[in-house]
């Protein structure tokens, strides 16, 4: 039987400088943060990161990993402004920015192996001034001028799921699946972190088909990472940790604050991380946030 299990460091070893990497989830929900922290610890550099951004983008920006950001927003939701992203952008971080729906469209184009998909989204805005976007004329009688959203091909996608088996079959149990399926299809390699890696039978796939977002054939590697989305949520297993997100946000105050945060929460192994953020019982008891 196929066995795609690996460690966080094994995933990092399969990535290279300069790659374009998509990160799944949305803002403070179901971000593969254990893997993001592994990237932050690594020697990888000059990455192009594509994400519906939250602390994943912020942490990689703060640790100098991002050469270019492809994004529609970066936010911590309940803390609207992501402070590390804010600092990086104000310092001139190169970006390709898209509307949320255009970003989805770019992933879909890549998933369909198309060069672009047409849209009206962006017309009338400053997005159209970016060199990455072109116009295209409808070949039909309407002759309308549309925008062409280029395919967002990814060298790798990093996704967090609730359950996986060793072959890469996954269940994403959260209330909103976001665009992880399209990221998986847009990427050459897909690495998933899972709350639990279980025997296939325990996925109860016949009952859970709607939580299986993509085929195992797309998955390159599976890492068991309990609380691997923390401080973002992996509901229903656990909710986002607003107190920790405040601690994280405060790390943008100055260089010393960032060094302290990295020492306590980034340059540590999984066991030390869990202890540093208050332990399993605390994380299981986090209450659901209001939006």
């Amino acid at each position: 039987m196929l066995d795609k299990r690996m460690t966080l460091d094994d995933v990092v070893d399969q990535l290279q400088d300069g790659m374009t990497i998509g990160i799944g989830g949305w803002a403070t929900r179901r971000k593969p943060m254990a893997l993001v922290r592994a990237l932050a610890r690594s020697r990888l550099k000059d990455l192009t990161i594509a994400a519906y951004g939250g602390p994943d983008v912020g942490l990689l920006a703060a640790t100098g990993k991002i050469r270019k950001l492809i994004f529609a927003f970066v936010s911590l939701d309940q803390i609207p402004i992501e402070p590390h992203f804010k600092a990086a952008r104000q310092a001139g971080l190169p970006v390709f920015e898209l509307d949320e729906g255009m970003f989805h469209w770019g992933l879909r184009a890549a998933a369909m192996r198309l060069p672009f998909l047409p849209t009206r989204v962006g017309i009338g805005t400053d997005l159209v001034d970016q060199p990455e976007l072109k116009t295209v004329k409808s070949p039909f009688d309407d002759g309308e001028t549309l925008l062409a959203v280029p395919a967002l091909r990814l060298d790798a996608a990093l996704l967090h799921v609730h359950r996986a088996d060793q072959q890469g079959a996954t269940l994403t149990l959260s209330p909103d699946p976001f665009f992880d399926e399209l990221m998986a299809r847009a990427a050459d390699k897909v690495f998933v972190t899972a709350e639990q890696v279980v025997p296939t039978a325990q996925l109860d796939m016949a009952a859970n088909t709607r939580f299986n977002l993509f085929e195992r054939a797309l998955v390159t590697g599976v890492v068991e990472a309990p609380f691997g989305a923390h401080p973002t949520s992996a509901a229903p297993d656990y909710q986002l940790d607003l107190d920790h997100l405040k601690t994280y946000a405060a790390s943008a105050a100055d260089a010393q604050a960032l060094d302290d945060y990295r020492a306590a929460f980034v340059e540590v192994d999984a066991k030390a991380y869990l202890a540093a953020v208050g332990g399993e019982a605390r994380l299981r008891a986090l209450s659901a946030p209001a939006y």
Binding site: G53, F71, A72, F73, V74, S75, P80, I81, F85, K86, R89, Q90, A91, G92, E97, L98, D99, E100, G101, M102, R120, V121, G122, I123, G124, T125, D126, L127
Partner: peptide, 21 residues
């Protein structure tokens, strides 16, 4: 300025699509 803003905020979010649909 767009290249190095005085204040960076959210990004464009879904505003472009909302505005014309």
């Amino acid at each position: 300025p767009k290249a190095a803003p005085k204040v960076a905020m959210l990004g464009v979010r879904g505003f472009p699509g909302n505005s014309i649909h």
